[in-house]
């Protein structure tokens, strides 16, 4: 049996009187690439935000890496090993690319105020390691611009990749990507696909929301489909593609 890295059971989320998610159960296996698709307004982003702790579910059980979380806070989940990117890129715009990634190292480093003031050996070593790692990650995701470039001055595709580098710096078990290919052209999307496959090859589990069905189908091991806040299908891409409920959901959405 493959170990479940993430297991959600019966997750429900309401905003005011509106149900955004109803009884969603799913699990993500360690080492796989898991896709989450669905028509607009299906609750993908809400589910994504529940998984990364930005929203707290109103009901259901949340287990990650063998631990159960009652009210998962974003920083605790990052600590536990879930890293994320944002649909509408949220970089630290006025900081440099290097600093952005080094901030990702925060959660795995320890220097406090006294370390900062005394700048003792441990702090210096840690700082050097963070910088080293940040530079490696910048290269790894393919940002060739100088590391001192401000995040806001990078190109769109570079910003997307910088977000991934920053997330990887937290040394995640699960990398959650919110529409990573949004706004990318075909070449950039292809590069992204290779990058994600590389990341998985390093043993990091990947979960992504994506509109680009072709990318999802070509990349994911398993896919879940949401519609109206419920999970209507789950399985390997080919299976899901043929699922009548999924076809209906997508055709229904196209009609609008």
């Amino acid at each position: 049996m493959t170990p479940h890295l993430l297991k959600l059971s019966g997750i429900g989320k309401q905003f005011g009187g509106l149900s955004a998610l109803t009884d969603v159960s799913l699990h993500i296996n360690a080492g796989e690439i898991y896709g989450l698709i669905g028509p607009n307004g299906a609750g993908k982003t809400t589910l994504f935000n529940v998984i990364t702790g930005l929203y707290q579910a109103n009901s259901g059980e949340f287990r990650f890496n063998g631990h159960s979380y009652q009210t998962p806070k974003p920083h605790l989940l990052a600590q536990a090993g879930i890293a994320r990117t944002f649909q509408n890129i949220r970089l630290f715009a006025n900081l440099t690319a290097l600093e952005n990634v080094m901030i990702g190292c925060h959660v795995r480093t320890h220097a406090g105020v006294f370390g900062a003031l005394l700048r003792n050996k441990a702090t210096r070593t840690e700082e050097r390691a963070s910088m080293q790692r940040a530079r490696e990650l910048l290269r790894y995701v393919g940002i060739d611009k100088p590391a001192q470039t401000l995040a806001k001055n990078l190109s769109y595709g570079e910003q997307r990749r910088l977000e991934i580098a920053r997330a990887l710096a937290t040394e995640p078990l699960l990398l959650a990507l919110d529409e990573p290919a949004a706004g990318m052209n075909a070449t950039e999307t292809e590069r992204l696909k290779v990058l994600l496959q590389n990341i998985r090859a390093k043993g990091i589990t990947v979960m992504l929301i994506e509109h680009d069905v072709k990318l999802i189908m070509g990349l994911c091991d398993r896919v879940a489909v949401l519609d109206y806040g419920r999970k209507i299908a789950e399985g390997v891409p080919d299976e899901v593609r043929g699922n009548p409920a999924v076809i209906a959901a997508y055709l229904g959405a196209d009609d609008e």
Partner: peptide, 15 residues
């Protein structure tokens, strides 16, 4: 500075 720039992104980075 991460908090100053974007608090939500900062907390998502484990801060």
């Amino acid at each position: 500075m991460a908090i100053r720039e974007d608090e939500i992104a900062a907390s998502a980075m484990g801060i």
